[in-house]
Simulated assay, not measured.
Amino acid sequence: MSRFEQLLQGRLPKLVMFDLDGTLIDSVPDLAVAVEAMLLKLGRPPAGIENVRLWIGNGAPMLVRRALASNMEGSGVDDTEAELALEIFMEAYDGGHEHTKVYPGVHESLKWLQKQGVEMALITNKPERFVAPLLDELKLGRFFRWIVGGDTMPQKKPDPAALLFVMKMAGTTPAQSMFIGDSRNDVLAAKAAGVRCVALSYGYNHGRPIEEESPDMVIGNLQELIAGCLDSAPEITLGNSVSSSRRDSIVVVTRKLWMKVIKALARWRWRA
């Protein structure tokens, strides 16, 4: 029995939702390069990769404010300067992701879930424009039916709106769903949505142990969730990757459709 089934009373989830940065990929090196390019252009001192590692997780605008303020609060930053800095950062980060790597065990775990017929979604606070191209580069996009970026909806994690939206689109209940992430934002969003949460210990939780957030399970490698299941399962050959144009359309459709279901989600969210 997989650990997925252990969490859901002997059943596999019908839907597994994933965070991206710090969960499936290590993107800190490229984010740090973009932050340093932004600071250099603005005549600011460099931040250092370890500071960037602490600052990420709440979306690009907050990362930029933290870099300008050189603290976690991002306080005391002029709004006009922050807007200019964000434009510079986005342009710099758009230049490439050659230093971003997929964590060990990710491909194997996603392939196994796909073989079991489990639907998968990606919910990230990373700006939407970067997500599909990055997934293409890393050969991950074919696994996800739904992609929600940090600016796809008005709310970002830890707000559960994106999780509730995807469950609505997938036709699943919280009891049939699961969220996998690496940070406090992910755990809070999962709890607010009423779904089980698995947390990766290697991620970007602002320098704090993820155990402090009390997820349902903490693991050090995504493949721990399917330990013992791969030996007896034959290797599968996946079909052609979903084209980037199709996945782009899924993101765009998500942006267009969320307004149509937000009232229903609100009723679901606050239902006694």
Rank of each mutant, 00 (worst) to 15 (best):
T237Q: 02
H107A: 00
I226Q: 02
M178K: 07
H97Y: 11
K41E: 12
S232H: 06
E91V: 03
L24H: 03
L40R: 05
M259S: 15
K41H: 09
K111E: 06
Q176A: 15
P61T: 01
K256Q: 14
G149H: 05
G96L: 01
P127I: 00
L31C: 07
L134D: 01
K101N: 05
R65V: 06
P29L: 01
A227P: 05
A199C: 01
D79V: 13
I49H: 06
S70D: 07
W268P: 10
R145Q: 06
V195I: 14
M90G: 10
A161N: 08
M153G: 04
A121H: 03
I56M: 11
S243R: 12
G117D: 15
L63W: 07
G57N: 14
I250A: 14
I49S: 14
V77L: 08
M178T: 05
K191H: 14
G105Y: 07
F89Y: 03
E87R: 07
D216K: 01
D94G: 02
M62K: 15
W55F: 14
A170Y: 14
G105Q: 10
L110D: 09
E119T: 08
L12H: 14
F179E: 10
A266K: 08
A67W: 07
L54W: 12
M169W: 07
E50V: 04
I226C: 11
D94E: 11
D231A: 13
K168Y: 05
F18D: 02
L63R: 10
P45W: 09
L265K: 09
D94A: 03
G74M: 01
G59N: 09
V77E: 11
R129K: 13
A175K: 04
P154A: 12
M178I: 09
D94M: 02
T80Y: 15
N205E: 14
A227R: 08
M17R: 08
S109P: 02
G194C: 15
G228F: 10
R66T: 07
Q155W: 15
G141P: 06
G207Y: 03
D186F: 04
E128Y: 03
I88L: 15
M72N: 02
V198R: 00
S75E: 12
T237G: 02
S75K: 09
G59F: 05
I210M: 10
L225Y: 10
A47M: 14
G74C: 05
R3P: 11
K101C: 01
S2W: 03
V253T: 11
G22C: 01
K126E: 02
T152R: 07
G59D: 06
M120K: 01
D216A: 00
